[in-house]
Structures are given as C-alpha cells and as structure tokens.
Design a protein around this nucleic acid. Structure first.
Length: 665
DNA sequence: CAGCTTATGGTGAAATTTGG
DNA sequence: CCAAATTTCACCATAAGCTG
C-alpha cells in the first residue's frame, strides 16, 4: 500500500522513525497534500467535525518561523511525533489536539519573548524559566498579560489548575519526546514531576454546572420557533425568492419588497419589526431567524449536542420501518457523535441515531428546503449553513471570502449567536402578544448557552414522561418518540443525565404525595408502602440531603436513591414500581434483572403499581372530554361502544382519584 | 476498579475581516 | 469608515484511557 515506504519510514541513527522535509504530515494519510517541510499543515480533512472552523485544524508555522526561529524545528518535530509516533506512555493524538497544543506552545513562546528574549531555542531553556511561567499562569492579571494579536484578553487574576496544566502540557511533551527531538531540553521539568496532580488539577469534579433553561425562556423560544415554522416560513421563503431574482437581474438598486409579512394568523401580532434596514440585511436576518427556529426545535427535542447538530448532513433524516409494528411511523436522524465515539474504521466514528417527534422532522425538512439553493451554490452537503452562505456571490468565478472553510458550515459559536438573536426576536414578539393578552407576561432578559437545551430536555423528560410539549403535540406519539430517542443513544451519558433529574423529580413527587396523604387523600396499597418508607427515610436525618432539591443537586444517600427509583413520574399517574405486579411487562421481562417500567405500555388506571393523585385529575378530565367529543362523530356501533367503554373507564378513574370512596373527604 | 492523566468538546468576548 | 459576522484565543468542563 505504501509506495513511499522507503523515505517515509526513514530511520535515524538510533533506529527510530524521524521526519524530514518530504515526509507526509500524517503517515497514515500519505494522500494529504502537505509535507513536513511546508509552512502550513492543513489537517482539516482528517477532522470528523465539519462544524469546526478551519483554523482549528490548520497549523501555521510562519509565526514561529518569523518570531522564534530557534524553536521552529523543535516545534515541528514535536508536533509530527505527537501525530505519528506512539510511545509506551503516549498514544498518537488527533489533529485537533495537535493544533491546540501548538497554540499553547505559541503562547509560551510569546511569553518567553517578553520575559526572557535571550532564550533563543530549547537548548537555552532552564527549569527556572518553566517555573516562572507556571507562576505567571497561575497568578497574573490583565496588566501583566502577554497579548496576542487577535483575541481574548485576560480579565481575572487567576485561573484554574487544569488550565495551568493544559498550558504546561507542551513543555511536558517536549520532555516526554526528548529522545525523538534533534535538540531536546537540557533538563527535565521539575525533575520529571510535572504532573496534573502537582499543579492541583483534577481535584474532585464538581456538579454539573450547566443550568437548565428557565421555564419562561424555553416556553418563549419554543412557542416562537413553532410559529416561525408553521406560519412565517412561507413569507421568509418568498423573501428569499425575491432577493435571488434581484441578484439574477443584475440591477443596482433593490426595488423594494413585494412580499408583505401579514399579521400572525395565530396571535394577530405584527411578527416582523418594521425597520429601515438594507434589503439584503433584512432578508438574511429573517432567514437566520428561521434557521434558528429549526435549530432550537432540533436541539431541544432531540437531545443532540450543538456540535452534533452542526455536523449533520442534509440527508440525515429518514423514516425506518418499525420492526415491531411494520409501520413507518417514526422519524430518525443519523449523525456523528462527538463524545463516546468509539473506534470505528478509518478513524471515523460510527454514526448514532436519534428517534425524534414529528415537529423535529418538520424542522429538518424546513432546513433542507430553505438552504437548498445555498448548498448548490457552495457545494456543501451540510444541513445547516452559516449566515455567510446567504450572501450574494461576488461573481461566478470568485467565492465569498469570509469563511476560509469551504461549504460555510455553521460553527458552534455561530449557533450561539443565532439562538440569542432569535431569543431577542421572540421576546419582542412576546411583548407584542402581551399588549393584547394580559395573561401573557414578558420574557426575561437571558443569555442562552446552546448546551443548555440538552440539559433542559433531560429535565423535561424526567419530570413528565407522559408530558405534552408546549401544549401542542399529541400525548402518546411525542412521549414515546422522545423517550425512545434518548434510549436509542444509550451509549451516551444523556440517559444518566435524565436519570439524575428523574431522581430529583421523584423526591418532589414523594413530598407531594406525602402532603396529599396528610390532607386526607387515601393512597392505594402500593403508595402507602412507599410513603411509609419515605417517612422513615425522612426521619433518619437525611433532611439535608433531601431538602435541597433546588439546583446543584442533593447528594443522595443510597437508601434514598433506591426508594426514589421506585417512583416514576407521570402526568397521568405516578408509578410506584413493583416488578411482580407490573402490567406493562411480560413475564419474561419481569424475570430479567434490573427490570423497569415500560412507559409506552403503561395502563395507569388498571395497574396495581399506578397511583392516581388529585393533581392528575385535570389530565384525565381532558381525555374524558376528548372521548365525549369523539362520541358525537362516531359512525359505527362498535366505535361508539368502545368510546363508551373508554369514557366509563376515565370517569371511574376521576371519581376514584378525587372523591368517592378512595379520595379526599 | 478507583484515581489519575490525557484528550478533546464547549463558551465568552475582543479583534479582525469583508462588503459596501 | 461602518456594521455585521466570524475568528481567535483564553478559559472551562468532561470523557476516555491507563495504571497500580
């Protein structure tokens, strides 16, 4: 396979592989363009993450060559070995990490330039320099910073040990690879004791600090996103057509919009503010909002990470045949996972799948349609494109210049700005709705981090496995689809996130059941058993662990955890799970270890495990109303009969839960 | 199999780039 | 020169992989 083996595998006098000018940058990818001698190593192709900006996987040596010539050879050798030479203690690293390491190296070199300009190369470096750098990293304020061209400046006066550690990693690597370098360090940093532990990094990890989006924020977002997809999309598409026609026309001035955004058919508000803005800005702003609307729906209801969404192909959606039912009744999105990737072939991680509800499929289809012309224009296959893809191309032979990466992927940082811009619009619309509808209040000022969607979904599923999203989607379909969606990517930690949230929710539920019981509600046998246990647990001085259910998460004792795990939350019932009489499981499933309730098979009114409390009555009432409405339209006798049976069933449940012989007095 | 290191994804915000 | 949108870099968080 390797025609160049002769010079690729060149060995030095110690019998080790070493690079020279014509060596490929990556031995396992000799087809890559660059060679060791080149001043730019472009590893973009080897990066599976298409949403990542190009500069992240491009290593530009020109800066080192110009400002720190004595270091150039060492930096390149180190980087090459990091990419190609596995050691006993160090495996080879990916292009992303290799580039990041060189960025950190550059920061060190900048610092040396300021503090010790006499250190011209690795041979001049001493332990005291390394130590001084470490102290500087640990404790330096903005006034002390060594500024780079370009970007972020220090704000604080200290940083975390793990950050210090990662900035010292290139120096550690110089030590680890000393045998391979033509001019190794003349000493071993801290006598070989430069470790994460020494720097205090890796201390006990803290709680998950990503807070879920507040209810008002997510409600505002989802509501507005849904309106964009359902009602405003045709207007936005018409604007796109008009703008493209103008481009083709070749006229100098935009003649003015023919498309008029009528009032919102649902709320009656003017949904697009009337601004004096250049047409091409207006058009891209609205297209951007529509993209954001789809993105929000996808992120919130699939549990994807932002980076995974930006990595999706335009043909990621399909409708597989359900093996159990033979029907094509579920939507599936396939993509590349960012974490827990596994090995896969050719370094490419195997795809994962998310099962998603209808509205997510709609959002994906909208993106497919909305961005189709730009995909054709820029030769991209990605589902989402950055806003720069929406600009007018300069001419046939010249591409747009802003993005240095071909195809205009939507980077993760851009997702952030897109979403926050959209939230501003959603708030603006909500203000307008509040003018006419006094029951609607204003949305809070809030900065959204894209990763919060995933966390918010975890909480949502945990609290309402039978829930109704935004009051709009059908109960059964969504709950099972979303639930299976996360179960489908079981290798992910998402299931664990959900479980943690569920346990916290379970504590709320137990407390609620307890106060219901104290108010005179008579629980069934299953619930009484659990409540009695709960009283015990509360007694045993777990108050501190249990009372704090608010944010950072209570540190749960195992006994609490176990107890809470038997209680499952639902908006139709609680399930006090007890394997032996669970109606949702077959005999075979019951006997398997770790059996848990099958949400989609639940029959809350029949199962002995199920507890229907007063707070569930409204949902059951809703089901009853629905059945009565249908009874009016039913045609055949059997249809009417089955509806009557259902109605009786629901009436019985309601009577049992709220009054009659089994409820409050 | 816990505790550590290593590898890598994510976020905030200033600086830069680009079209006009 | 202006405004918009991205890139860049510092900082942060967490998963994967070793090792004893």
């Amino acid at each position: 396979m390797n025609a160049h083996a002769g010079h690729i595998r060149a060995q030095d006098e110690r019998g080790q592989r070493s690079p020279h000018g014509e060596s490929p940058i990556l031995l396992r990818r000799p087809d890559l363009k660059g060679r060791f001698g080149a001043m730019v190593w472009d590893l973009t192709e080897t990066d599976h993450h298409s949403g990542r900006v190009e500069s992240i996987c491009r290593i530009d040596w020109n800066d080192v060559a110009a400002n720190h010539p004595g270091w150039l050879a060492t930096c390149k050798e180190l980087c090459w070995h990091r990419l190609n030479t596995p050691l006993a203690t160090q495996k080879t690293i990916g292009s992303y990490h290799a580039s990041r390491e060189q960025l950190r190296m550059k920061r060190f070199l900048r610092w040396l330039d300021v503090k010790h300009p006499d250190v011209a190369g690795p041979l001049d470096l001493r332990q005291r320099h390394v130590h001084e750098y470490r102290v500087w990293l640990e404790n330096h304020g903005p006034e002390d910073a060594v500024n780079a061209s370009g970007a972020n400046v220090r704000t604080g006066s200290s940083c975390s040990p793990q950050t210090v550690w990662s900035y010292l990693l290139p120096i550690k690597a110089l030590d680890v690879f000393r045998e391979r370098l033509s001019s190794p360090l003349p000493f071993s940093p801290y006598d070989g004791n430069l470790t994460a532990k020494m720097l205090g990094a890796g201390e006990t990890s803290e709680e998950n600090t990503t807070e879920p989006l507040p209810d008002e924020v997510i409600a505002t977002l989802i509501d507005c996103a849904r309106r964009y997809i359902e009602h405003y999309a045709p207007t936005v598409l018409a604007m796109r057509e008009e703008m493209h026609a103008f481009w083709d026309d070749g006229r100098a001035d935009f003649p003015g919009w023919k498309t008029k955004p009528g009032p919102c058919p649902e709320t009656g508000i003017t949904w697009m503010p009337d601004r004096k803005k250049a047409a091409h800005h207006l058009y891209r702003e609205e297209l951007g909002h529509l993209v954001a609307a789809c993105l929000i729906v996808i992120l919130y209801l699939s549990g994807m990470r932002p980076g995974e969404a930006s990595n999706l192909d335009s043909d990621c959606l399909d409708r597989p045949v359900d093996r159990a039912t033979g029907l094509r009744d579920r939507w599936r999105i396939s993509g590349i996972p960012l974490k827990k990737r596994g090995k896969g072939k050719e370094g490419k991680p195997p795809p994962v799948e998310w099962v998603v509800p209808d509205i997510v499929a709609q959002a994906v289809q909208m993106l497919q349609k909305l961005l189709a012309p730009y995909r054709a224009m820029h030769g991209s296959d990605l589902l989402m494109l950055s806003k720069d893809a929406l600009r007018k191309p300069k001419s046939r032979d010249r591409k747009l210049q802003r993005s240095s990466k071909t195809g205009y992927p939507l980077s993760v940082t851009s997702i952030g700005s897109l979403v926050n811009l959209f939230y501003e619009r959603a708030r603006w619309q909500r203000d307008a709705i509040a003018q006419t509808d006094p029951s609607v209040n204003q949305a809070p000022d809030y900065h959204i981090k894209p990763s919060q969607f995933r966390r918010t979904l975890a909480r949502f599923i945990a609290r309402q496995p039978f829930g109704i999203i935004a009051g709009r989607l059908q109960y059964h379909h969504v709950s099972t689809a979303v639930f299976e969606g996360y179960a489908g990517s079981i290798s992910d930690t998402f299931a664990l996130d959900v479980e943690d949230e569920r346990i916290l929710a379970g504590i709320d539920i137990l407390e609620e059941m307890r106060s219901d019981a104290r108010a005179g509600w008579r629980a069934g046998p299953g619930a009484s058993r659990v409540l009695a246990e709960w009283e015990n647990v509360r007694e045993v001085g777990l108050a501190s662990a249990v009372v704090d259910t608010s944010s950072k998460g209570a540190v749960l004792d195992n006994s609490v955890r176990k107890l809470v795990q038997t209680v499952h939350v639902g908006s139709l019932s609680y399930c006090v799970f007890n394997v032996s009489n669970a109606l949702c499981l077959t005999e075979q499933e019951k006997s398997s270890p770790g059996a848990s309730p099958a949400i989609s098979m639940c029959s809350p009114d029949k199962c002995a495990n199920s507890v229907i409390a007063p707070c569930h009555v409204p949902k059951w009432q809703g089901l009853l109303d629905e059945v009565r409405r249908l009874t009016g339209t039913a045609r055949s006798g059997p249809q009417k009969q089955s509806l009557r049976t259902a109605a009786e069933r629901y009436e019985g449940v309601i009577a049992k839960a709220q009054g009659g012989g089994n409820g409050k007095d």
